[in-house]
């Protein structure tokens, strides 16, 4: 079991609990959701050829801020988001959270940060096809807890999941498999899954990229309200300017470098 910490059931996913967890790692003291990158570089190899994707990216996202990253396809937006979310490691540079470096943490701590601090939303929803909507939403909690502690707290967690599912408007689809849901519903389910851990930073990679504009608008409204009411830090990748404008700030990426940072609307 990689997640062995014990969390008092009463404040599961609660911010103070997250703090205590992360404090245990003695690396990040105050995960307030302030993220910054320092001179990030990342390149991939295609055979012998080195393909630089990011060439020194510096962004800072404040706590409670809604930032969108735009750029052409292949400009390195997803790569940047993955680096921030610790899904990958940069070749050069640092990722800081509230001033502390998090990209060089040991693997286990990175796993825990992903589980506790970051919430991910992907363009293709990425729900697990074998699990029902409810199970999908609860999966981060299942990953967090051992069998025994999950079993003890299953009621509380179930309630919490139902609450969040209701909040994204899918209360009537609990038992459905992802294949039985529409694109918009799947994306809402993915958002619910990202929210259940009460993350401090939400990382969304083209969350509306696969949806029609009406459904996409609903998803954007949902994100905006999460940012507004729950003071969730959101970093959203998109290539659609009109969507990007709903954020506080727009970071423009071009060929692995930051072209401009605009203040939106």
């Amino acid at each position: 079991m990689s997640q062995t910490q014990t969390i008092d059931p009463s404040d599961v996913g609660n911010r103070s609990a997250v703090q205590s967890v992360v404090n245990k790692q003695e690396t990040v003291k105050m995960p307030k959701g302030q993220i910054s990158t320092v001179a990030l570089e990342k390149s991939y190899f295609k055979g012998q050829h080195k393909i630089p994707v990011l060439r020194g990216v510096e962004v800072a996202v404040n706590e409670g801020e809604f930032v969108s990253i735009v750029g052409q396809s292949g400009s390195g937006k997803s790569t940047l988001l993955h680096l921030i979310g610790l899904l990958d490691t940069p070749d050069v540079g640092e990722i800081l959270m509230n001033g502390d470096r998090i990209d060089d943490l040991p693997e286990k701590s990175r796993d825990q940060l992903r589980n506790h601090v970051f919430g991910f939303i992907f363009q293709f929803y990425h729900l697990l096809p074998e699990l029902s909507l409810l199970e999908n939403v609860m999966s981060p909690l299942m990953i967090r807890h051992s069998l025994w502690s999950f079993w003890k707290q299953r009621r509380a967690m179930r309630e919490q999941a139902c609450e969040i599912i209701a909040k994204v408007g899918l209360g009537h689809r609990m038992k459905h498999k992802p294949s039985e849901l529409s694109g918009g519903e799947m994306q809402r389910a993915a958002i619910a899954r990202a929210l259940i851990t009460k993350p401090t930073v939400l990382l969304a990679d083209e969350p509306t990229g696969n949806l029609d504009s009406d459904t996409g608008g609903e998803i954007m409204d949902l994100l905006a309200s999460l940012n507004e009411h729950d003071r969730l830090t959101i970093v959203m990748v998109t290539h659609d300017d009109s969507i990007a404008r709903q954020a506080h700030r727009i970071v423009r990426l071009k060929e692995g470098r930051i072209e401009a940072v605009d203040r939106a609307a």
Binding site: S2, Q3, D111, H116, H126, L127, S139, P140
Partner: peptide
């Protein structure tokens, strides 16, 4: 493969 990536993104460790 994709599901494994998802699980890892959600915080699952290699051991898991």
């Amino acid at each position: 493969t994709r599901d494994i990536g998802i699980l890892k993104a959600l915080g699952a460790g290699s051991g898991g």
